[in-house]
């Protein structure tokens, strides 16, 4: 790709790669904006959910996904954890001059497939090519809108003592996969990223329990960060039990050698939920019946004190504080 081709060349590129990939009539119309009838939205609920996120990842391709999968699934998940039905996405792409068109095509194809799986449509987009060195290969921004059905009130401030804490599956797959791919670390077993849209799983959960209190996809900062946000926003303590945390043996082994705590590793297809205690079993059952929630587990409960704290109960009856990390996991034992 050459920079500043502008005009016709750019139009060709978008036409060729994205419209080709998405192949959807709204986008194909090539207006400057997507037009959505309000009545169509209102059928789904009473509130609009609107979010945006920018995706930069190194490497672009990793076991289990690529930046395209991430860009669609990430934004879909940000909508879905509000209880919203994700409907439309936009997509802005910044390309570094010299990026092979083939790379772009692969990413676009991933986006198409992921959008299809999530049942959302990419309805508007934009592409810019910048000089070599002004960007690292490929950045993608997606924004999304969805509609929240009436009666759903999910919020990080709604956890109450006694509620159950659920995670939807193995922790840390994405973080471990990226780290290993980026640093070219030799690991005997493959760890594929868990990158995927979660709106289907969330639908199943809401069907089992419309009164889900808190819900969040555990992306950067991992489950630890989400739990800390719940604990602080709700003014409660969260107690989790180490032996109940679902963890892939390969991830566990890699974490042990690397000295990483899987609670802080990023996920791109895992969520954390807080539900009323009496609904926990029902929700778990519904999740396990769904392919994206097969390894869902209750990992802890909400307690009253100490407010704002997340406490890990270790195997030997010990306890450890799991706090919010400012940066990376930095050694601190003197």
């Amino acid at each position: 790709l050459t920079h500043g081709a502008g005009g016709k060349a750019m139009r060709d590129l978008i036409q060729d790669v994205f419209v080709g990939a998405f192949g959807q009539p709204d986008a194909a119309a090539m207006e400057d904006q997507a037009r959505v009838p309000l009545s169509a939205l209102a059928r789904h609920g009473d509130r609009l959910a609107f979010t945006t996120d920018t995706y930069v990842v190194d490497p672009l391709f990793f076991p289990g996904g690529d930046i395209g999968t991430l860009a669609v699934a990430g934004t879909v998940n940000d909508l879905a954890v509000s209880g919203a039905r994700p409907l439309y996405l936009s997509c802005g792409v910044v390309l570094e001059e010299g990026l092979p068109v083939e790379t772009l095509r692969r990413v676009a194809e991933s986006m198409r497939r992921t959008a299809e799986a999530a049942g959302v449509r990419i309805v508007t987009g934009d592409t810019k090519v910048v000089e070599r060195g002004s960007a690292d290969k490929l950045f993608i921004n997606t924004a999304g809108i969805g509609v929240i059905p009436a009666g759903i009130e999910i919020s990080s401030a709604r956890a109450r003592p006694g509620d159950a804490v659920i995670v939807s599956g193995h922790l840390g797959d994405h973080g471990a996969a990226i780290l290993i791919a980026r640093k070219q670390l030799a690991l005997e077993a493959d760890i594929p990223s868990d990158c995927r849209p979660l709106n289907g799983l969330i639908d199943a959960m809401l069907a089992a329990c419309p009164d889900i209190r808190c819900l969040r996809d555990a992306t950067r900062g991992g489950v630890a960060t989400v739990l800390n946000e719940f604990a602080q926003d709700s003014g409660v303590a969260i107690r989790i039990r180490e032996e109940t945390l679902p963890l892939r043996e390969t991830v566990k082994g890699a974490c042990e050698i690397l000295g990483l705590d899987p609670l802080y590793l990023a996920n791109e297809g895992k969520l954390v939920a807080v539900v009323p205690a009496d609904a926990a079993e029902r929700v778990i059952e519904a999740m396990r019946a769904h392919p994206d929630g097969r390894d869902a587990a209750v990992v802890g409960c909400i307690a009253e004190r100490p407010r704002g704290a997340v406490i890990l109960e270790t195997g030997f009856g010990g306890e450890r504080i799991v706090d919010m990390l400012v940066g990376e996991q930095l050694p601190r034992i003197c």
């Binding site: 042990e256 050698i257 690397l258 000295g259 996991q329 930095l330 050694p331 601190r332 034992i333």
Partner: peptide, 8 residues
């Protein structure tokens, strides 16, 4: 420190 705090 191989593995950060693990090395401890």
């Amino acid at each position: 420190l191989i593995g950060g705090d693990r090395a401890m």
